[in-house]
Structure formats: structure tokens, C-alpha cells
Amino acid sequence: MITVFIIVLGLVMIAAAVLAVQQKSLLSAVLLAGVISLLASILYLVLAAPDVAMTEAAIGSGLTTIVFLFALNKIRKQGKHD
């Protein structure tokens, strides 16, 4: 049962990673990278590491995505001004 769960999650993560690399739109790529981190945090729970799961959920999918989005916002505005 748990093996099937891991395989399904793993396939989704691999698909998200390939899409994130191939995606033309930067915004979707950033969000897909966030999805990979969020699913990874579920895998950490399976691996009996709740501390790491908490950190990955808060940092990997929360703050990293936000920092990326703020940076994209800054870059977009620079383009507008020039």
C-alpha cells in the first residue's frame, strides 16, 4: 500500500520536475518547483522525519516560492521602466 503511494507521488514529482524544466512560462515553472517541495515534505513524513517535513513544507513550498515571485515581480518592473 505504502509502496504504491510512494510510486504515485514519485511519478507526479518527476512529471512536475520535467515540466518545470521544459516550461516556457517562468511563473508556472516556479509554482511547479513549489509543488515538488510540497510533495517531498509528504515523503519525509513517510521516512519518519517530521522535523524535516515541517521545514520543507514551510520553506521549500512557502518561502522559496514567495522569494521567487518577489524577484520575478522586481524583474518585470525593471522591464517596464526601461
Partner: peptide, 25 residues
């Protein structure tokens, strides 16, 4: 709460700090 209970439950200073930072966000 997370960083005060770091020695009892999952969590600790790093997680607590990150949660506070996301509140500020």
C-alpha cells in the same frame, strides 16, 4: 509555540523562525 516546544515535539528554532517570517509575508 513551535520554537518553545522544540525539545518535545517536531519543530524548533528553524521551523518557528520560518513560520514567523511567513506571518510577516
Amino acid at each position: 509555540y513551535i520554537f518553545l516546544h522544540g525539545h518535545l515535539t517536531p519543530g524548533g528554532g528553524f521551523q518557528g523562525g520560518v513560520v514567523i517570517a511567513s506571518g510577516i509575508v
